[in-house]
Write a protein that binds this DNA or RNA. Structure first.
Lengths: 204, 204
DNA sequence: CCCGCGATTGACTCGTCAGTCAATCGTCCC
DNA sequence: GGGACGATTGACTGACGAGTCAATCGCGGG
């Protein structure tokens, strides 16, 4: 028939999108599966038709987004026309814009998975490390090219860099950092400027 | 009598210490109150004699430690003989040593409260912000004294700094960062060097 | 030696949900 | 138009675990 009301793929998406909103609002642990079903305007049991468990819903949401992020990092890394610093700028920009575009989704990814390494993060440690490793590779290139100092480990620098981004998003999520459209671009600059330039005033 | 086996205060402590071990091992959400009682070698109900709820146990553990940390930061801030950078060094050193001395306790503070801002962190946002604000004040002094650049907000710099520390501890907790006795002092240097010095190689 | 009271015990209650499942619906194909 | 099969429904079950409470213990004072 020409007008299939909602295909299986659309239904699944509808449930995932509803879950993002519910997880963002109530948190994974404190929401019920029935909340997701209600938010999606769907019967309780249907969630289990599309997903094996509540946890699989979260896993799906996380991996979908995280894989995009890792792909972007890899893509940026491949560009030969950029300096290491410009690569870090591009990554920062992408992640901050991801938050700007869909705060709920990024909130779930960060708060419920990435920062909750004790519970779910543990399952996804490998995926998370893949991002760290890629960033570390970029920093290593920067060091090899004489662009960055070599007084610290690339691995540590990578954590500090990603940590600064995550910290900024967390700051927005919990209202510790001023929001507003300008803030996004300001913070992009702050992040790269802090990590690359440092706080110290260069000797005059 | 001269030899009271265990005073009320000691019992309470005993339960708190057991809870730290259990929370560190299993996580707050996935452990049962009976696990804490078992670990403490005490009957289930006794936990409720000393604490109103499972959550109050976690709150107590967190606040006890966090307040010490904030005090230390304030104390460091008051020292007129230190540069801003030296103050940041002292704070870093204290926090890293806290982890070295009692990893379980710091794991609980960070993983179950600080990084879990959605659940418990929310309750403690004020306490957490008190630390950020104090650090920001130190950085502001550094800026005013011409020691630090003023291209970024003190508030953001504070988050980046504390974020780097938290990221390092998280790295140890989940085995993403090499451990070992040397690593502690190395990472102390990395943290301050990254945040103050930045990655960029200064122009020759 | 006995009484009183806080410390201690652990079986029990009670609410909550994740996940199941048998029944119904609706569409598409023959 | 009928039947087959996947989509959809929501009442139900079973497990689990936080918090309660009445009973017991044991120290310290009288």
């Amino acid at each position: 028939m020409a007008t299939v009301r909602t295909s299986a793929a659309e239904r699944r998406r509808q449930i995932l999108d509803a879950a993002v909103r519910v997880f963002a609002r109530q948190g994974f642990h404190t929401c019920r599966v029935s909340d997701i079903a209600d938010e999606a305007g769907v019967a309780y049991g249907l969630v289990y038709h599309y997903f094996r468990s509540k946890e699989e819903v979260l896993d799906t949401i996380f991996l979908e987004r995280w894989n995009v992020m890792v792909s972007v990092i890899e893509e940026v890394d491949r560009r030969a026309d950029l300096t290491a610093r410009q690569k870090l700028e591009a990554i920062t920009s992408f992640i901050v814009d991801s938050y700007r575009h869909d705060p709920d989704l990024m909130k779930v990814v960060i708060v419920e998975v990435t920062r909750a390494a004790n519970t779910f993060g543990r399952t996804h440690l490998d995926a998370i490390n893949r991002a760290y490793d890629r960033i570390a590779a970029i920093i290593e290139q920067g060091m090899a090219a004489g662009e960055f100092r070599q007084t610290i480990t690339a691995q540590f620098a990578s954590m500090a860099f990603y940590g600064a981004i995550e910290q900024a998003l967390t700051g927005w999520i919990f209202g510790m950092l001023p929001a507003g459209e300008d803030a996004f671009d300001d913070v992009k600059r702050y992040i790269v400027d802090t990590i690359c330039g440092g706080l110290d005033r260069p000797p005059a």
